[in-house]
C-alpha cells in the first residue's frame, strides 16, 4: 500500500484548564488515503473537533497543544511545521467548513469578495480572474443565478446557500483534504441531503479526501467509507462503515447505532422503545485515567475495565476496537 495522504500517529493533545492539564485527545492514530472519506462520530465533547483543529494547526492558543505524536500530511509533520508553513497549507492543501453557516461568513464583504480573497491569497490570481473564478465556484456548488448572487452579502442568503458558499470557499484552491465539522447540523433535513449530495459529487470530481465530523449515523453511512468512533478523547472503534454498522464491537458504538430512530411503514406497527446510551461523557478531569472511560456507562463492564485502559486490537480486515470485551461482542 502506498503512503496514506494523512497519517495521524499516537496523537495526544493537552488542554490547560484552570486546575489541570488534561489530554482531550489521547493516543489517537488513524490514516486517510487520497480520495477517501472518513467520518468521526461521537457525542459532544469527545474531541472530534479538537482533532480537526489540530490537523489545521488551529488549536486554541496558549490553552491547547500537541503534547506528543505526529500528524503527517504528504510526508510532512504538521506538528513541527512553522506557523508560516501552516498558513500556506491552510485553505490551500487542507481546508475546513464549519458547523454554523450563519456565522461563518464575514458580514461586511460580499460572498464573491470572500471567495476571491482565498484565491488571491493562495493562487496569486488577479482581481478579475479571482472574481470570475468565484462566479464559477458558486455555480459549481449549485447556487442558482451565480452571476448575480456573487455580489450578495451573506445576510441575503439562506443557511443552506451560505453553507454552499463555505464549501465553494473551502474548495476554491482544490485542497487535498476537506474537513467538514458538522456541516449540516444547523440545516434543515432536506437541505442536509442536498449538501451531502453536493459534497459527494464534488469529491468525485475533484478527488478531495473528506474528513467528516458528525454525530449523525445516517450522514456517516451516506458519506464515508470508513469511520472512527471517538469516546472521551480516545478512538473507541475504527473500521469500514458497513462493517461497523453491521457488526459493532464496542458497546458504545452499539449504543450509538441503537439510538438511531427507524421510520416504520405503518403507524400502527409495534414501535420499539427508542434506546439511549445512559449517562454522560465523563468530565475532562477523568480523561487521563488508566481505565476504560466508557466503563461508567457500559452494560458489559467487568472489573478489569476499571483497572486498566483497554488496548487497541485490530483484526485482519483493519477493523480495530479498544474494548476488553470487544471480541466476545456480537
Amino acid at each position: 500500500m502506498s503512503d496514506p495522504l494523512l497519517k495521524v500517529q499516537n496523537l495526544r493533545i493537552e488542554l490547560t484548564t484552570r486546575d489541570d492539564v488534561v489530554p482531550v485527545i489521547d493516543d489517537l492514530s488513524f490514516e486517510l488515503a487520497a480520495q477517501e472519506s472518513i467520518s468521526f462520530v461521537g457525542e459532544s465533547g469527545c474531541g472530534k473537533s479538537m482533532t480537526a483543529l489540530a490537523i489545521m494547526g488551529l488549536l486554541p492558543e496558549k490553552i491547547g497543544r500537541v503534547a506528543s505524536g505526529s500528524i503527517i500530511f504528504d510526508g510532512e509533520d504538521l506538528t513541527q511545521a512553522s506557523e508560516d508553513r501552516l498558513r500556506e497549507i491552510r485553505g490551500n492543501d487542507i481546508s475546513m467548513i464549519f458547523q454554523e453557516p450563519m456565522t461563518s461568513l464575514n458580514p461586511v464583504y460580499t460572498v464573491g469578495e470572500q471567495i476571491a480573497e482565498v484565491l488571491r491569497a493562495h493562487q496569486g490570481l488577479g482581481q478579475q480572474a479571482a472574481w470570475t473564478m468565484a462566479e464559477e465556484l458558486l455555480d459549481a456548488v449549485r447556487i442558482p443565478n451565480a452571476k448575480r448572487r456573487v455580489s450578495d452579502y451573506p445576510f441575503q442568503m439562506s443557511g443552506g446557500q451560505r453553507q454552499r458558499v463555505m464549501i465553494a470557499m473551502a474548495l476554491a484552491c482544490k485542497p487535498k483534504i476537506l474537513i467538514a465539522d458538522e456541516p449540516t447540523t444547523a440545516l434543515d433535513v432536506t437541505v442536509q441531503a442536498q449538501i451531502f449530495d453536493l459534497l459527494n459529487d464534488l469529491r468525485r470530481q475533484t478527488g478531495t479526501s473528506i474528513i467528516m465530523i458528525t454525530h449523525d449515523m445516517g450522514a456517516v453511512a451516506e458519506m464515508s467509507e470508513r469511520m472512527i468512533v471517538m469516546y472521551a478523547g480516545r478512538g473507541a472503534e475504527i473500521g469500514g462503515v458497513d462493517e461497523i454498522i453491521e457488526k459493532p464491537l464496542h458497546p458504545y458504538t452499539q449504543g450509538l447505532i441503537a439510538c438511531v430512530p427507524h421510520i416504520l411503514a405503518t403507524v400502527s406497527a409495534e414501535r420499539e422503545r427508542l434506546l439511549e446510551v445512559p449517562g454522560i461523557v465523563p468530565s475532562l478531569r477523568e480523561f487521563g485515567k488508566d481505565q476504560c472511560l466508557f466503563a461508567s456507562r457500559c452494560p458489559v463492564r467487568t472489573d478489569i475495565c476499571l483497572q486498566k485502559r483497554p488496548p487497541i486490537e485490530t483484526d485482519p480486515s483493519g477493523h480495530s476496537v479498544a474494548c476488553w470485551h470487544g471480541k466476545d461482542a456480537s
Binding site: 489545521m56 488551529l58 498558513r87 500556506e88 497549507i89 491552510r90 485553505g91 490551500n92 481546508s95 475546513m96 467548513i97 464549519f98 461563518s104 461568513l105 464575514n106 480573497e117 482565498v118 491569497a121 493562495h122 463555505m166 470557499m169 473551502a170
Partner: peptide, 9 residues
C-alpha cells in the same frame, strides 16, 4: 476562525 482556516495572515 473560518478566515484563519483559509490561511489569512
Amino acid at each position: 476562525m473560518a478566515s484563519r482556516a483559509s490561511g489569512t495572515k
